[in-house]
Amino acid sequence: MRQAVQPLAPVEATGPHQAAAEAEPIVEIDALNKVYRTVRHGDVHALHEINLNVRDGEFVAIVGPSGCGKSTLLKILAGLLAFTSGRVTINGAPLKGPSQEVGLVFQQPVLLPWRTILSNVLLPIEFGRNRKRKDYTDRAHDLLKLVGLEGFETRYPEELSGGMQQRAAIVRALIQDPRLLLMDEPFGALDAMTREQMNLEVLRIWQQNRKTVIFVTHSISEAVFLADRVVVMTARPGAIARVLDIDLPRPRRLEMINSEAFGAFASQIRRLLNASEDLS
């Protein structure tokens, strides 16, 4: 219903789903380990032997109890955290640090209060290599329109609701046209109604822009509703318990949450999480 954003690079006109089926892995994680060495508690195994491949255009959700290392994993993929051992490649190249191919959305919007929404959204352009802001303002306006923030460009973050701020944060993550979008419990701080709206919004953005999304969440139903695959993690050490294919039809609609198939996936994930709770 809203006009699609012109991507900076041309993309083949296949739907995300068809593309995902035959696409190469955009993220390859091989025997990844992350150990924190602490004085008081000795070595803490935050991530243990993680193996995961994410295909181009895929929507992957990661669920798990707190302390299972899901945020650590996301920080590693964002290039913000060094890992202890293993191999990670993004887009075929070994992960060496932050990359333009990766956009990051935090639990909080993390907008700078002294900048307008437009200026916040363009912040990534000012970092790193020399780039001109004006080359990206059209794209910023289009993306703001896509998430329904048209007309709020000159407002300051505190004038916007929590949901609107998080939409702006998503636009900021998309401004450099990354292939991979990492979202770390992005809607955890929002109320239930807004959260459902934002879930639909994310799916719409994902479908229109054909990004690959890795989405960390506490919410089982959010994971099932959004994802092609759900990665269930367990804590201490953080490890992958199971990866589930969610073969619910797309586009997803809120009514599906009440369907039998949806409930089956949700209870299966809950059982996996409970089993890991009992062990620890």
Binding site: P98, L104, F106, V110, L112, P124, G128
Partner: peptide, 14 residues
Amino acid sequence: DPARIDLARSCNAT
């Protein structure tokens, strides 16, 4: 806020 620093670092800020 450390998240602001993370945000800048994730965009390759010097």
